[in-house]
Write a protein that binds this DNA or RNA. Structure first.
Lengths: 229, 229
DNA sequence: CAGTGGTCTAGACCACTGA
DNA sequence: CAGTGGTCTAGACCACTGT
């Protein structure tokens, strides 16, 4: 094994960061690169492929490979399970179920999840604590047309998230991040002041084309979600 | 070309989602899979490799490939350039520089960027408009120890982001998402009410181990950042 | 139509690590 | 130490898409 694709990737990246191949520039084609590195084209291909995945370069057949004008445009966030997030901070995780109701889907939910009118849903409200402090409020809706078992499940000790993760093997997710103002209910659950600015994530989870669940997670004031790329 | 790696990947994923290979299970090794799909091992390798990248399975030499108990939760967000974000919405982009000052780094900034005391920085405040409405407020600090050219640059017509992108070829970034309450200055710049909940991102950009810039981007009320995974 | 990336193959050797 | 994934090679054909 002469030259690894990692070495090739690193060297190309170096040439880009050092301005040998500035943004917007065309870099040599795979055959030429392979020759200059003394390796097979497949090795170069993998290296450049990864650079494309990373958003560093842009590739088009016949047109060649170009260094992107705006190099990095993507960040990867880990979406933690609440329990883990709390335990990672060295705190004790505690969970309480605040409310549970079986009902028909409200209009706004029906539209988002494409539930027919009169579709039954399970609505849960929970608080996740880090030690004694409220850490996150969970407002969860589960589509009973798709997951009727949910109405039998006992959520007094286990959070719906962990139950769902164990029940659904794999899924498509649409996730949003936003800011919201605490209303009185939220303020009470999170032990903060009404009108506080709160970080919130919304998630819709699909399985085999059908919406399973909608959840809105609201964090305690001051929460920050961080990553590097 | 008999079987593509996409087909293999899709079929394996199907077997996982349909419970043929439930979470925690060991799936067949690459040689067996290649035989059963009637393709080369490299094809299977690429398929399973991607499933591992996607967090669906976990691979270890000798131990084999295992379906993850809880599929890893990762979301990829596009980090848009403001101009593009606005133009993608079909609005006209407009930019104004609100303030510009040369000064020594305040303590909190010095700590975050590891700037020595008395280090010089350029502090900029800008508003990015979508049509006539304020879309985003940019609070930007540039480390002049690393980028002295910034003090010469003219930011009256071009935003610092675009200037930086054109100047720095590639970089490491630490990014955070959070919620903040509008103070009077923010409210004025964004045309909203004080105490509104605003979505905010913070970014620190590093190049070759040195901090170049810190920026805090505050969005208009109601802004939502969305992705699928 | 011709140049470039996209992918597959068949075979090989290596690197890690569980039994 | 033996089984599994990790990677490279040399060659081939295909699929796009600019010119």
């Amino acid at each position: 094994m002469a030259v690894t694709f990692r070495e090739v990737k690193a060297d190309i990246l170096l040439k880009i960061t050092q301005g040998v191949w500035p943004p917007g520039d065309l870099i040599p084609n795979e055959v030429d690169l392979a020759e200059s590195y003394g390796c097979a084209r497949a090795t170069v291909n993998r290296a450049v492929q990864e650079l494309a995945d990373d958003g560093i370069v842009e590739r088009r057949r016949k047109a060649g490979t170009r260094v992107r004008m705006a190099p990095v445009r993507q960040a990867r966030f880990n979406i933690p399970i609440v329990r883990q997030e709390i335990e990672d901070r060295g705190a004790v995780y505690r969970y309480t179920l605040v409310n549970r109701e079986l009902r028909t889907a409200p209009d706004w939910l029906g539209k988002q999840l494409k539930i027919p009118p009169e579709g039954r849903v399970l609505h849960l409200a929970c608080v996740h604590y880090a030690d004694a402090t409220p850490f996150q409020f969970e407002d969860r809706w589960i589509n009973l047309d798709v997951l009727p078992e949910a109405s039998e499940a006992d959520f007094t000790n286990t959070g719906p998230n962990e139950w769902l993760v164990a029940t659904i093997p794999f899924s498509d997710v649409e996730i949003s991040f936003l800011a919201t103002q605490a209303d009185t209910a939220l303020a009470q659950h999170l032990g903060c002041t009404a009108r506080d600015a709160l970080f919130q994530t919304e998630r819709i989870t699909w399985w085999q084309g059908r919406a399973i669940t909608y959840v809105r997670l609201t964090y305690q004031p001051g929460h920050k979600m961080t990553t590097r790329y």
